[in-house]
Design a protein around this nucleic acid. Structure first.
Length: 772
DNA sequence: ATTCGCAAAGTTTTT
DNA sequence: CTTTGCGAAT
């Protein structure tokens, strides 16, 4: 076998990593902390297996994203010079398997994969057909419930609502309709890919055995995010040859809300007897400061396996926690500091990333970045394949490949407009339903539909004729096929006729699609091009196309950040209601997931990390006062740097070099404006950066008021001590009881006597020399 | 068949 | 403040 020798494969790896690489037979669990070189270990292990004479075709490497799969493939190729190991996503693997055995689950092998938008449309159709009133629940909620059911391998016939659950009752009724309509369209949604594959393996013993034998070595990445369907699939393929190697980190499970089941990884050892567990805890990414903050945070989770993260990196700069007066200041300040770092030649734009909990928060950041002409890119889930014009053309391709694809039919029957209105489509649908036909078949019978206007019937027939003309077109060159569609439908002509900027952009996008098809033609010289192209269009999304190359600041949600790393990271709006999100605050499990989400964000940082919040945030048009995230209280504040910028950056000329050395404005005035005149005054640090005054954590949290905590450890308080409370003034500690989080002080103030949990109380010891 | 306007709702989203 | 969807108006 070509490629590296064993010694080369093991070179530079720690003992734990070597152990994992050299593991061949039997189940293996790699608990891999953030930045622990997991991908490296996995690729080296595959290379090792190949070296030991394992056939490439008996190895199966499953990931969650195409990006991860591509990365792995690239590295393996570099290592061994070969690429015949199948690496891909769960969904890709299932799509391929299902293609071969489609008939066993009631599909034809040219079935189509609906993306989220299309399956939503199909669902809404089903709701109409089922004649269910959705007065008090959204289609969205029904979709979530069905998705959950499918991930849990509950078929439409098995689904039973819990008594007293109104949404469940609705789902129970709609789910079978929805599923029937998908089957009638010879289509599946994302969840079906997994569910059908699991079913296939469950109900066909010989097939299961055959595939089990075939895939002797299975690897699963991000195992903490697998759901029950995925579990069932890999379990079924690991009975006779249980050489299943999974990698994951329970602390990075952030997709519980999508059905990921944390117990899969937590109970792996029980599920697969004789498992070897390897812990990869050394971190090669972040500074100790960053790791310490991450570790302090995540250790507040109860439902977790203990893990110690360590690194031999040099200390680096402390993690910063910054409180800005307003969300506008937050955005402006971050943009300004990026600008300044780049201008001073210390960093490139691409070194920076800004994370936020929800997409809606990107706007103010974009605005601030644009203001300083800082190049940036936003990582969105959607984009190219979601654009209307691209989806339109794809719909033509889908319908050509699978004539039963009703969602595609409905999309294009009047696109571009050809005089077929809502009424006519309605009639077509009725006809189709009554006679059990697909929409296209119904369209062929347009002449027979009585209530259909002559003119409409003619228009529909003309559409069918055009379709048939396209269908006889040889489909081996995608590029030609797409061009025929563009010609035959007059799609381009319609756009060229208009001269709005929007339509020009659309033309450009179509051009891009043609180019993509062209490339696809070149790279895939085999049969079934159309099918493969459509499959890729369904299963590949644009995060995969995120570009590391251009020198730009990256903006994304915390979810999108998983698996990436950047030298400098800003996490904004670390506020109660954002992280943890409002809707996650009640449920302890969801709260822990929110904590993991922040953990993931923090551990993306290599050198510098700044967490920030605003005292006032403008959100959804209104400005609101902000409560700092409860998670902030869990961080080792004494070891962090806490800052309170003083100057609102509303100067339009901001960004000129001079502004960075502006004198610090008058403290007293600022605090009066903010109603904080009584704040403890500290000597001005001589080298305050960015017009920022360093403050103690206590100062900061005192200002934040509600729900805030003392920066002093509970142990610092003793009986007889004088303390100050922001609301009650100074008082005397009469008694201290309890321990740990329950440690409580009884304090006598001028008027009243109060009890405080010391961990959370905004109490501040008064030094003898500063008594008023 | 399109367009306009108003009301409603607004986490996260690997595939 | 947005975006999105639906219904009425042209």
């Amino acid at each position: 076998m070509a490629g590296a020798s064993v010694a080369e494969l093991l070179k530079g790896l720690t003992a734990a990593q070597q152990e994992a690489v050299q593991h061949v037979d039997g189940p293996l669990l790699m608990l891999a902390g953030p930045g622990s070189g997991k991908t490296r270990v996995v690729t080296h292990r595959i290379a090792y297996l190949l070296h030991q004479g394992v056939s490439p075709r008996s190895i199966l490497a499953l990931t969650f994203t195409n990006k991860a799969a591509n990365e792995m493939r690239l590295r393996l190729e570099r290592l061994t010079g070969q690429s015949s190991v199948w690496m891909g996503t769960f969904h890709g693997f299932c799509a391929r398997t299902l293609r071969r055995y489609a008939n066993l689950v009631g599909l034809a092998d040219n079935y189509s994969i609906l993306d989220a938008g299309d399956s939503r449309k199909a669902l809404k159709q089903a709701i109409v057909v089922a004649k269910v009133e959705l007065t008090y629940c959204s289609p969205e909620a029904v979709a979530t419930a069905i998705s959950w059911a499918k991930s849990s391998l509950i078929s439409p016939t098995d689904y039973k609502a819990r008594p007293g659950n109104p949404i469940g009752a609705i789902v129970e009724e709609i789910y079978p309709h929805y599923q029937r309509s998908l089957l009638a369209s010879n289509a599946v949604d994302f969840d079906d890919l997994l569910m059908y594959t699991a079913q296939l393996l469950r109900d066909n013993a010989e097939l299961r055995q055959e595939l089990d034998e075939r895939y002797r070595y299975i690897m699963v990445d991000e195992y903490q995010d697998t759901n029950m369907a995925q579990y069932a699939i890999i379990r079924a393929l690991s009975q006779h040859t249980p050489n299943l190697a999974v990698t994951g980190d329970p602390d990075q499970s952030i997709y519980g809300w999508r059905g990921a089941d944390l117990s899969n990884i937590l109970e792996f050892e029980r599920d697969f007897p004789g498992v070897r567990v390897v812990r990869l805890e050394q971190n090669y990414r972040s500074t100790p400061n960053i790791l310490q903050v991450a570790d302090a945070l995540i250790s507040h989770n109860v439902n977790r396996k203990r893990k110690t993260l360590f690194t031999d990196h040099a200390a680096g700069r402390p993690v910063r926690l910054v409180v800005f007066p307003s969300s506008r200041d937050e955005a402006d300040h971050i943009a300004a500091s990026i600008f300044s770092e780049v201008q001073q030649g210390r960093r490139k734009f691409r070194d920076f990333a800004i994370f936020y909990r929800i997409n809606a928060l990107s706007r103010s950041l974009e605005f601030a970045l644009r203001n300083l002409e800082i190049p940036y890119q936003i990582v969105h889930g959607l984009e190219f394949y979601q654009r209307k014009e691209v989806k339109d053309i794809l719909a033509y391709l889908f319908l050509l490949h699978n004539p039963q694809h009703d969602v595609a039919f409905l999309r294009i029957i009047n696109t571009p407009t050809r005089g077929i209105g809502k009424k006519s489509i309605q009639l077509l649908m009725h006809h189709a339903q009554r006679h059990g036909l697909s929409m296209l078949e119904a369209a062929r019978e347009a002449g027979l539909i009585e209530s259909l206007a002559k003119r409409s019937a003619v228009a529909i027939s003309r559409f069918v004729a055009m379709y048939d003309a396209l269908a006889v077109e040889p489909a081996d060159e995608l590029e030609d096929l797409i061009n025929s569609i563009l010609d035959g439908t007059g799609y381009t002509k319609t756009l060229e006729a208009s001269d709005t900027e929007e339509d020009e952009q659309r033309l450009a996008n179509i051009e891009e699609l043609v180019t993509a098809a062209q490339e696809f033609d070149q790279q895939h010289p085999e049969e079934n091009r159309l099918q493969r192209f459509l499959e890729q269009a369904s299963l590949v999304n644009d995060v995969d196309g995120w570009d590391e190359e251009p020198d730009q600041v990256t903006l994304m949600t915390l979810h999108a950040a998983k698996g990436l790393e950047f030298p400098v990271i800003y996490i904004v709006a670390v506020e109660q209601g954002m992280i943890p999100h409002e809707r996650s605050q009640e449920d302890p499990d969801q709260l822990e997931e929110e904590r993991r989400l922040l953990f993931v964000g923090i551990t993306r940082a290599e050198e510098e990390l700044q967490l920030s919040l605003a005292q006032r945030r403008t959100f959804r048009g209104t400005e609101r006062l902000v409560v700092p995230s409860a998670f902030l209280m869990e961080l080792p504040r004494d070891e962090m740097e806490t800052e309170q910028p003083l100057e609102p950056l509303d100067d339009p000329d901001w960004g000129e070099e001079d502004d960075f050395s502006d004198p610090i404005p008058d403290d007293a005035k600022y605090f009066q404006d903010e109603g904080m005149a009584d704040i403890e005054q500290r000597p001005q640090p001589s080298a305050a950066r960015d017009s920022t005054r360093l403050m103690t954590a206590a100062d900061l949290l005192k200002q934040q008021g509600q729900g805030s905590a003392s920066s002093h450890s509970p142990a610092a308080f003793q009986e007889g001590m004088l303390v100050r409370h922001p609301e009650y003034g100074s008082g005397l500690i009469l008694k201290v009881t309890g321990s740990g989080v329950k440690r409580t002080a009884t304090v006598q103030f001028a008027e009243v006597e109060k009890k405080f949990r010391l961990l959370h109380a905004p109490l501040e010891p008064i030094q003898a020399d500063e008594e008023e």
